[in-house]
Amino acid sequence: MLRAELAHLFGRRRVQALLVILALVPIGVVVAIRLSGGPGGGDGPAFLGQITNNGVFAALAALTITLPIFLPLAVAIVAGDAIAGEASLGTLRYLLVRPAGRSRLLGVKALAVVAFCVAAPFVVAAAGLIVGSVLFPVGRVTTLSGDTLSIASGAIRIAGAAGLVGVSLLGLAAIGLFASTLTDIPIGAIAATLGVVILAGVLGTIPQVSAIHPWLLTNGWLSYGDLLRSHVTWTAITRNVALQAGYVLVFGAAAWARLTTRDVLA
């Protein structure tokens, strides 16, 4: 059933369009940098300035650019639609009568959403890498600490960064899945999920609530940058992974409790 669900999810025009748009964002930015002849001022997103020297950095810049809005938007759409979308079509009742099993259905849906969370940043990074290496010279990767890495080692770290971005999205995905079990209207679940990202972002900028900052969903999202140091510091990365795992556990359990007990009237 998982294989069928994955084929179903990634076979949807909507999901394909999301991935294409995610790929187009870094392509657009890199092309713009190329056309304008340089990165301009020094206070753009991280890694943007290094693209002109080394196209490989376009992959990292792509992740940085899409992480605040585009990736969460895509994940919210896919996760929020997971159960609520089936409910709004009426197919939820037929899946349950089939019987797919409520826990099993939720598990399969969750795994499909996880697959999307992983696939999306890889698509973004790959698009950045390809367009960056076509338009700019490619060379050994200079770390944030100033050393250089071989291209192979750099590629591994970039893949690692994409993977960590994927992990960063899992907490959000769990919230989206939970929201999706609450309603029969997918757009409601999607909006609620996006609302959580925005709320976390806003709270993160308010110093008066700094006490809760370490626990915000978005708090460790940029920790993947630590992978680009000569000697990778794992503290922030580990903390983010643990935080995301916590969100997944809490909201995954809530989604399970909700779906296995609710009356399906749609």
Binding site: A4, L89, T91, L105
Partner: peptide, 20 residues
């Protein structure tokens, strides 16, 4: 009845059959 509008009749039956 309730099916996925963007799939064909056959594909819809394939999906529901694979789901259980």
């Amino acid at each position: 009845p309730a099916f996925y509008p963007w799939l064909s009749g056959r594909q819809n039956l394939e999906r529901i059959d694979a789901a259980g």
